[in-house]
Every structure is written in C-alpha cells, then in structure tokens.
Nucleic acid binder design. Sequence first.
DNA 1: TCACAACGAGAACACCGTTCTTGACGATCT
DNA 2: AGATCGTCAAGAACGGTGTTCTCGTTGTGA
Lengths: 232, 232
Amino acid sequence: MAAIRNARERARSALVEEIKAEAFRQLSAHGSAGLTIRAIARELGMVPSALYRYFPSREQLLTAMIIDSYTALADHLDAAAATQETHRNRWLAVCRGVREWAFDRPHQYALLYGTTVPGYQAPQDTIAPAARIPALLLGIACDAWRAGQLTQPAEEPWSDEVAANAATLARATGLLDVPPSLLMRAVSAYTQLFGAVSMELFGHLDGAFDDDAVFFDHSITLLADLVGFRTS
Amino acid sequence: MAAIRNARERARSALVEEIKAEAFRQLSAHGSAGLTIRAIARELGMVPSALYRYFPSREQLLTAMIIDSYTALADHLDAAAATQETHRNRWLAVCRGVREWAFDRPHQYALLYGTTVPGYQAPQDTIAPAARIPALLLGIACDAWRAGQLTQPAEEPWSDEVAANAATLARATGLLDVPPSLLMRAVSAYTQLFGAVSMELFGHLDGAFDDDAVFFDHSITLLADLVGFRTS
DNA sequence: TCACAACGAGAACACCGTTCTTGACGATCT
DNA sequence: AGATCGTCAAGAACGGTGTTCTCGTTGTGA
C-alpha cells in the first residue's frame, strides 16, 4: 500500500473500512440475503446513494468482503499451523482451524464456500487470496514428504489419464519435486475437508452424531492417514 | 395420495405442478436469485398474488422444490446403482451419478447442497427425502460387508469418544449389524463425495486439472478403497 | 337453489439496488 | 488570494421485489 497522501484519501479509506465493517456486522447478524446497501447506509447515517462513491455495486462490495475473508481465513490457518511441530499435527491443526473458523462465522464461511454460481463468476481478484488455503495444505504435505515423514503410498493402478492430470496439477501448483500421487491425495483430502465442514454447517449431518466435532476429528485423521502422514 | 375428488382439486394440483415446473425453468435459466414469484406469475399469465393461493410464500415454494429435487436425485442414484453388479461398482456408480446430476442442473444442486439459509432452518418435510442419499450409500457399504466383499479395516486407534459417536450413528441409521468403524468411514466418504462435487461446481478447483472428471474419478476410487471395497 | 369456500384480479405497502441531479466543500493552480 | 475543478453527501426518482388486502366471480356441496 502506498503511503496515505492527504486528509481526503485518509478519510476515504477509513470510510471504506467502516462500510466493510458494518457490512460484516450485517452479514453475521442477518446472513448475506440481509446484507443490504440501504441498511448499511442507514446504520452509518448516510444515504444509500452515498455508498456508491466507495463501491460501484453491491456485488463489488461482496467481492471485497470475499477477498478480506479469504485472507482472514488463510491467516487464521497459518497461525494454527505455526502452533505445531510435526507435519502431521500441522496438517491436522489446519483442518481443525477451518472448522473452527467456519463455525465462528458461518455466514462468512458460506460467502466463500457456499453457493457461488449464478452462471459462475469468480472475479480475478479473489483467486489469489483463495489459493492460499490449498497452497498451505499442499505445502505441508510436500514438506512432510521432503523430510521423509510420509509413508510411501502403496502402488496404485495409475492410468495415463490420471497421470496426465496429476502432472497438470504439479505444474499448476509448482510442486514438481514430489510424487504426483501425493498431490492427488492431498487435493482429495482438501475436498474432503471442506466437504465435511460444509455438510455439517449446512445441516446435512444433523442427527447422525452426538458430537459432530468427534466425527470431524476422526474423519480428518482417516484422511491424514490416506495422505500418508506418519503417526508421530 | 388420495384419489382426486373433483374438477377443482384436479385443476388445483395441476396448477401446483405448473408453478413448480415454471419455477424450475426459471431456476435453471437464471439461478435461485432470479427465481421470482412475479416472473413465474408473468410467465403463467397470472397476477402475482394469485400464486399465494398455492404457495404461502416464496420460501415454501423453494421448500417444495427442494423436496422434489432430493427425490429426483435419489431416484437418479437408485437407477445408477441398479446398473451395476458388484458392490464396489454400485458405490462408484452412485458417486458418479451425483456428479452427473449436479452438473446437469447446477442451480438445482446448489439449492440442495449449497448455502442453505440464513440462520438455518431445514423444514421437517425435507429431511426424509434428503436422507435417502446417505442411506443409499451406507446401504451399499453394508451390503458389501454382509456379503463378505469388504476388506477388514485395519485396527485403528479407537477412542471412547469416537466409539460412542459411532454407536450413535449406528442407532440413527438403524445399521446395527455392521462394524461401526465401517459406518464412520462411509460417512467420511459421503462428505468427501459432496465436497468434491461442490468444490468443482463452485469453482474451487479451477485451473488445477485438465479434466476435473478424471480427478473426481480418481478421488472416489481412493475413498472406495478407504471404505474397503475390494477391487473386483 | 342457496350459501359458502375457493379463486383471480388489482391496488397498495414497504422494501430493495441503482441512477441522476443538485449544491457544498476542500484541494490545487495561477 | 482567488478562481477552478474534482470529490462528496443528499435527495428524488425508476423499476424491481415479496406480500397483504379487498373485491367481485364462480364452482361445489348441501
């Protein structure tokens, strides 16, 4: 960020932050459907049209909130990973961190990982912050492999098709020094992680367990084993 | 269903079906945000208030659509399972059926498995049709076990907490004759399945693979192994 | 045949996102 | 210092939304 030039710009960016803060308040209180330009303006003592000086549309405000949220989640996960020594425990801490973060702010999680497709558009600005999360997980798995802390995956039937896709994945992530099969397993675990959190949060596990957290923990353990993390 | 009594009731239920059909048309064309009472009425040549004779609110119309959709998906999956002989192939066919169904009608899938609600409410009427899908998956896994077609799961560290939750799961599903660890694994696979479909559909896998279908197939194979399905 | 319930139409209410115009204010240049 | 110009908040307005209510009409069951 460039240094703040003058009072006007300072006031402007302060107001942008205030608007987002109020928007997050509305989001957590009433969900994204209740997040309304007019309500934000009302709460801030402005007139609705005034907000258009700062965000060209409701959708762009949501985009800004999505970017901030991805960043907040990624920071939260970085911090969770930093608390653990072993690779396996770092991986598990990140998984638990996702669930924790999601349940503390369900509407914000839903903004990121809930329905995002009216014909689908992921604004270019959101993809970089969003990519931090899978990158963190894959990074931990790769670090473990490099440190010799992963059990060798059993040889598996490995068709040319799968091999080609695994190679593309390696290229897309820039992780070319590890076995592609590891990357595939890690991405599978990544989808399982968010599947488990979303299914629980959105009520698809209601009534199945006494304590969903225990199932979640068991579930990420199974997947950590699948990726190959050694029990320390 | 009771027999249709008179012309009025026949007209009524026909109109209910027409409204839902038009609503599904709007849903697939413009997404759930573009699904509007007024647009449906317009298309049907009625006035908006007239629809309130048939559905007391937009939300209740959506609820009816959700129930129909769960039923359609479950029927689709039943049919997919019926095409296969071995337990493993039936399981895999169901997994592929979910993805297939979802990508044929993304908005309808999002209605079921995307963000469900501000503050959450799953109307009681939706839970029975929704439960058919996990029941189908768990049923296949249990059939395989009863038929001796599952490899024994390796002994795993099995805390009292996990055991208690597994027991609750067995009770909730009524599947008391199979190892609880199998049920836990099957539910894990269930969350992974919908995680993989949702992540792909909602754009969280964009750019990772040349062909997402290949990754998906590989992924469900990994999880089928985890559940214990023998490669035939 | 009559009374009642169900029905469609229409107007109205309170919201929503967004646009446009108007007037004031602050920063900048001469 | 004064004129100028861009930025800003306000207000009114437009077209859209879900929903409610009233009012004739019309089919149905007694």
